[in-house]
Design a protein around this nucleic acid. Structure first.
Lengths: 205, 205, 205, 205
DNA sequence: AATGAATGAGGATTCATTCAT
DNA sequence: TATGAATGAATCCTCATTCAT
């Protein structure tokens, strides 16, 4: 994982504009180049000095945000020394940081998306393989911690375990996003239930 | 939940055209009306005899497919009398029916989507509230069975349990979709691990 | 001038539908065939049993209404034996019969219109030259009466006189249509001013 | 009344294209955006850089032409010091400047039109109330002159007088436009008759 | 390097007309 | 004769991209 690159100021402005637009609930696929550039306060043509096309702008921006988010997340997790504390922290982050969550949701969607942006993002991920910090790196980190201090049973396959954790996070996001889902319990209770569930599932019998 | 409606032939042709297009990995948001109508073998104008606009066509088609899929799934599940057999059946269905899986993925994506199609779909769901069979009905059914024959501990909150099941299904779809995920084990093994995981998570201590 | 033709019932329904639509302030050029047929309570295809195309429907309808209006007007005028009484009667009719006035305005507009409907109407008028009763026939009648009983000076050219009368009618229609025109006097006063003006203009010195 | 605005070159090209099209007897309501832009020698999209939609293009163009025409007309009338000379000048202008007359006719038609362009034009007129020079400004000017030098009797209501003048102009346009109107006299004779008629109607007894 | 005016390909939608029933 | 479902040509408008300044 490379060190954070220093971005050209215009590029940074573009990335932040994309983040803001996503945060404002504009669908990624309906974002227009002029939306981005006017928000970024630069000329439309300038965007094309740095990027080949719209898809590159958006997918680069998303990749950049995800990198930032995941890096920060790992940094925060490193201060905790317990898998379940880490899980709790992630769930709380999801509750807290709506902006970042929106980016994350778009990112996850685009991973299995056949549209132009999705394809571009997927290609970029393959190309920049290890240089960008991604959700799977956060998962790896958690897994490592979990196994190291015995929260996760060694009998459980690593790929299964990380999938199980990822799925819980996704399901939690769906849960809190879906206003119709009868919320018969508070978010805190749900956090606890999720951690307890994971403990039963991945922990020692 | 209403009885299956009989569709106008042209409407059926449109719905099937949408299904095919999704199956052929054309992004929902990039589907053109002319794609749909030419695939359906009808004139472009005809689509507008039955639907107000493109979004209505696509979201209705998806809702129809999801209804069919979920109805059939419940019918099949009713013949099984064990929660884990049911889970196994679902995972096998996901392996088998690629077409339906693609529709399901698109559907789930659109549920948390701010684009025009997503918005239209969400509105349609609210309107046709109980008439359409949806994934949550499949979940409810499974939950009921699981609790009834003791596979799911009564101590577990219903909303948590259905989230846990949904998460597993999502995880499995991610698992088989992501070619990069090091497939260190066969699908059958993965089925078993998932069921075992659920057993530990939701079953009796 | 021929005797009134007896219309096929469907044709009459179409004509009345057009009249109603014009009365409802729908622009002639924005009237759709389906508007007309649904209003007339007949099938869309049926209209094409009687007319070659949309333009024929609308221009025939207008011509029919104008013929009716002008015939009736002349019949009424015949009972009056004074040019200025006749003029007063026309102004009152304009006040009273909004529906007919709307048709008349559209008709006059279309006489100098290069659109499809206008062209068709103009062609029809040329073809059916003397069979249809038109505004100019009303004017001729008035002129005749006016000259006969001495209200209009014989020194005045017939074409000028009819233009002068037409101008007054147009002016009055503009006057009552334009809400902005400061209505500093009542309609009755305006009637009187118009008749006085005509008296000075066309009468004997 | 504002000073003439300097137009963007593309806007001017669009305005002139509309004028030409009207002059070529293409019905305003049948003008296509591509007609205008190709005539103006610019790209279709460019029109939308300056105008929201087709209706705005056409009604703005008409308003601009009318403003030009009326300004020029007033400027010319200012050099004449007699109401009847002014009237004569207007009738001659109508004979001479066919292009401008076509624009004027379209404009007058649209003032009492329920179509999209008409509505837009009417709204624009209300908004830009005093900034645009319009036919009623020409009328006002004539009236002023007529009353000032005693050609129009002070006993005649201003609104009636301007209506009478306007109606004469409209009637004259209809007269010369309608080839069927039996022209038993030359245009010059008709001019004279109109002026004489107005003199009798509006002048001192 | 930065701009934003200009472009035009592309796609949604409408509606007059047809024709099988 | 009457119908109205089906059609597709026609047209408005959008927006990614370019390029002269």
């Amino acid at each position: 994982m490379k060190v954070e690159k220093i971005l050209f100021p215009k590029v940074k402005a573009l990335y932040e504009a994309v983040e803001e637009l996503i945060f404002e609930n504009i669908d990624v696929k309906e974002i227009k180049v002029s939306d981005i550039t006017s928000r970024a306060g630069i000329g439309k043509g300038t965007a094309y000095e740095y990027f080949k096309n719209k898809e590159e702008i958006i997918s680069s921006a998303l990749l950049y945000q995800i990198d930032l988010i995941c890096r920060q997340m790992i940094k925060n997790l490193e201060e905790l020394n317990d898998f379940f504390q880490a899980m709790e922290f992630i769930l709380c982050s999801i509750d807290r940081e709506i902006k970042k969550r929106d980016c994350l949701i778009q990112f996850v969607h685009l991973l299995s998306d056949n549209g132009l942006i999705g394809k571009t993002l997927q290609k970029k991920i393959k190309e920049t393989n290890q240089e960008v910090c991604m959700p799977r790196d956060v998962l790896s980190h958690m897994l490592q911690v979990g196994v190291a201090n015995g929260d996760i049973s060694r009998g459980i396959s690593a790929s299964y375990a990380s999938m199980a954790i990822a799925a819980k996070v996704i399901a939690y996001i769906i849960y809190i996003s879906d206003e119709n889902w009868e919320s018969e319990c508070s978010r805190e209770e749900m956090h606890r239930m999720i951690c307890d569930g994971l403990r039963r599932e991945l922990g020692h019998a």
